[in-house]
C-alpha cells in the first residue's frame, strides 16, 4: 500500500458489498438461464436446469441476508439525500454527461450512488419477496403470484441495467474507484476529485485515515 492513500472502506463493508454483488450477479445469470431459453446452456453448466433453479432459489436467500446487511450498513449514508447540493448534482447530471462549471461538492456518496443504492435496496427487497412467492405459489392467490412474476422480471430489468452503469463507473468510467472495493484504500486525488466534501468532513472531524501516518487504528496496522 502506498503511503498517503486514504482509507475509504472497512473490511466488513467490503465483505458485505462483495456478498451482495456476487449473489446479485449469480441471481441475474441463473435467472437469465431460466428466463431465456437460449441461455438454458447455463443450466447445463451446473448439471441441469433443476440445479440452476436450486442455485437461484438458495442464492436468493443468501442475497436476501446480504441485502439486510447492506441496507443496515449504508442506509444512513447512502439512503438519504442532502439538499440542496444533491439536487443540484442531479440537475447537473453529476457532471458526467456535459461540462458543468460549478459542480456542488460531493460527500461520501454522490446522488447517483445513492440512487443506485436505493434501487438495489428497494428492488432487491421486491425481488426477494416476489421470488419467495414464486417459489411457494400454492400459499398465495394465483392473481398475486402472477403479479409477482411481473415484479420479478421488472426488478431484474432495472437492477441488471443499473448494474452495468455501476460496473462502468467503478472501472473505466471513474478510474481509481475499484480499490475501495478490493483493498479499501484509495488515492487522495481520487477522493478529492470524486468526494471532495467527504474529504473535508473527514479532515475536519479528524476521522481521516492516511496510510503511513500516526493516526492509524489502535490495532497498529493501517
Amino acid at each position: 500500500m502506498k503511503i498517503g492513500m486514504i482509507k475509504a472502506t472497512g473490511p466488513f463493508e467490503r465483505v458485505v458489498h462483495w456478498c451482495v454483488a456476487l449473489s446479485c450477479l449469480l441471481l441475474c445469470f441463473t435467472g437469465m438461464g431460466m428466463m431465456y431459453h437460449s441461455l438454458n446452456g447455463l443450466g447445463t453448466m451446473v448439471g441441469g436446469m433443476a440445479n440452476l433453479k436450486t442455485i437461484h432459489n438458495f442464492g436468493g436467500i443468501f442475497f436476501a441476508i446480504s441485502l439486510v446487511f447492506t441496507i443496515g450498513m449504508w442506509w444512513k449514508e447512502a439512503g438519504l439525500f442532502s439538499f440542496p447540493e444533491d439536487w443540484q448534482w442531479i440537475i447537473a447530471g453529476g457532471g458526467y454527461l456535459w461540462h458543468v462549471e460549478n459542480m456542488p461538492e460531493v460527500g461520501k456518496y454522490n446522488p447517483g450512488q445513492k440512487m443506485f443504492f436505493l434501487v438495489v435496496a428497494l428492488f432487491g427487497a421486491i425481488m426477494v419477496a416476489s421470488g419467495l412467492i414464486i417459489w411457494f405459489p400454492f400459499s398465495f392467490a394465483v392473481s398475486l403470484v402472477r403479479m409477482m412474476y411481473v415484479l420479478h422480471a421488472l426488478g431484474f430489468v432495472i437492477i441488471f441495467a443499473f448494474f452495468f452503469v455501476h460496473l462502468y463507473l467503478v472501472t473505466i468510467g471513474a478510474p481509481g474507484s475499484a480499490p475501495a472495493m478490493f483493498t479499501g484504500w484509495v488515492t487522495k486525488a481520487w477522493v478529492k476529485k470524486q468526494h471532495p466534501k467527504w474529504l473535508k468532513e473527514m479532515e475536519e472531524d479528524g476521522t481521516l485515515v492516511v496510510y503511513g501516518e500516526e493516526k492509524c487504528s489502535k490495532k497498529g496496522r493501517c
Binding site: G4, Y96, A189, Q194, E213
Partner: peptide, 25 residues
C-alpha cells in the same frame, strides 16, 4: 451508452497534480 460515454465524454479521472506521491509524507 457507457461505451458512448467513454469515447465521447471520457472517464472521470482524478487530477494529476493532486496525486503527488510522497506529498503526504
Amino acid at each position: 451508452g457507457c461505451f458512448l460515454h467513454y469515447i465521447t465524454h471520457g472517464p472521470k479521472t482524478p487530477d494529476d497534480e493532486t496525486t503527488c506521491e510522497g506529498g503526504n509524507k
